[in-house]
Design a binder for these strands. Structure first.
Length: 177
DNA sequence: GATGCGATTCAC
DNA sequence: TGAATCGCATCA
């Protein structure tokens, strides 16, 4: 999904950062502890939006996805704003384009996404659209952010070199001698 | 019912 | 570094 443009009503952005959460065996995923999340995976089609309130204040946007034999969620963590940027500035209460969508809670605020769309099929929403814009996006992986369980998995995906990431890739720089 | 804990963000 | 703030799971 890195490099795809997410259009949401009046605003849009290119997805530059995501994280994967597996429905089975991933201790950091909601499915690991929550029956409601497991039911969601079992009952809904791929493309369903899983939107939940984090820390009591931030809406986080996930897509239910289906792979070869495995299902799970893709958390959208950062966008490069492309449309409705002034609208985003108003919703975010700041002007720096770099900061409008550089975090999972920031981008939902910028796009005005909240729990009212939880469970909806993104392909059935008239005002939502997901389309590829980059044919050969350079994708890097990194450890997931803010995770304590199953923390060793490199399931964060980044558009290489993008200035719109929530956090830059943790570099394994060669030790100075 | 009470308690604890986050897939975060922002100000100090 | 800490506060804001709420849904869900767990336990009494």
């Amino acid at each position: 999904m890195i490099g795809c443009e997410l259009t949401w009503a009046d605003s849009a952005g290119i997805i530059v950062e995501t994280e994967a959460y597996a429905a089975i065996g991933d201790e950091a995923a909601h499915t690991f502890l929550r029956p409601s999340a497991r039911r969601f995976v079992a009952e809904r089609p791929a493309g369903s939006l899983y939107v939940y309130l984090n820390y009591g204040m931030h809406w986080l946007l996930n897509f239910l996805v289906s792979g070869t034999g495995a299902r799970g969620f893709v958390l959208v963590r950062a966008l490069q704003p492309t449309k409705g940027i002034d609208l985003m500035r108003t919703r975010r209460g700041l002007s720096a384009e770099r900061s409008l969508c550089s975090g999972p809670g920031k981008l939902t605020q910028a796009l005005a996404i909240d729990g009212s769309v939880h469970g909806k099929d993104v392909f059935a929403l008239p005002y939502a659209r997901l389309n590829a814009t980059l044919c050969a996006a350079a994708v890097e992986t990194d450890l997931r952010v803010g995770i304590t369980k199953s923390a060793e998995l490199e399931w964060r995906f980044l558009l290489k070199g993008s200035p719109y990431l929530s956090i830059p890739k943790k570099e394994t720089r060669p030790r100075a001698s």
